[in-house]
């Protein structure tokens, strides 16, 4: 239910920030920027692992490489993956950089999510299992608790990973994939539903690093 129990539009600041340009120059001009299916510009937030961190505005369709090398002036230290698009965005291994452009199609075709396009880097030496544990913990912490898969599943995932990290426990692969599927297709909102994407990316691209934690 929205405000006064009525349907309610909630816009983020990025959307509102686009209004002056559209008001000034018209919709046509705005639509002329960007790609066919992702029009306009995108704000990209670069984290402290870049030589030049900060917020940049790029035209949709700009190569990811350009953003990293030219606007961010490259990484400060060795990075193995980037979490792009927020906590529920995809986990992009550095090997994929050249295949991606900043637009919705490019990311989703490659199995990622542009989301709000922030880029959080995961350094080479940072254990991915920690990162996955953190993702589940984040979801468990943010979960409103209404729907069963997310309320229970985020905590169970967090606990399993913790146990696996502590040793003496290996996560059953089938159970883990059942959990991800339940979260993904069963959750009521994008929080529980979004968690599996980065986790699956990690399992796909960092099989070896994560393998020992599974049965």
């Amino acid at each position: 239910m929205g405000l006064f129990n009525m349907p309610t539009v909630v816009n983020n600041v990025e959307t509102l920030a686009n209004l002056p340009f559209i008001a000034d120059s018209g919709g046509q001009a705005y639509a002329a920027i960007g790609t066919d299916r992702s029009k306009g510009t995108k704000l990209v937030c670069l984290d402290g692992h870049f030589n030049q961190p900060g917020l940049v505005e790029v035209e949709m369709g700009t190569p990811l490489r350009t953003v990293i090398d030219e606007l961010g002036r490259g990484f400060r230290k060795p990075i193995k993956a980037m979490h792009i698009g927020g906590p529920l965005g995809g986990l992009v291994p550095v090997s994929k950089i050249d295949e991606l452009t900043i637009d919705f199609d490019s990311f989703s075709k490659a199995g990622f999510l542009l989301g709000h396009a922030s880029i959080v880097c995961i350094p080479e030496e940072y254990p991915l299992i920690e990162y996955l544990g953190h993702l589940f913990e984040f979801t468990a912490h943010e979960s409103c608790g209404k729907c069963f898969p997310c309320r229970l599943g985020s905590t169970r995932g967090k606990e399993m990973i913790q146990k696996a990290k502590d040793g003496n426990y290996k996560m059953p692969k089938e159970l883990f994939s059942d959990l991800l599927e339940a979260l993904e297709i069963g959750s009521l909102c994008a929080l529980g539903g979004g968690l599996p994407l980065p986790v699956r990316n990690a399992l796909l691209y960092f099989k070896e690093e994560l393998g020992p934690y599974f049965e």
């Binding site: 059942d178 959990l179 599927e181 339940a182 297709i185």
Partner: peptide, 11 residues
């Protein structure tokens, strides 16, 4: 079917 089973297992 799998989804239902997995949810109830969580419960």
């Amino acid at each position: 079917q799998r989804l239902r089973r997995n949810i109830v297992e969580l419960v």
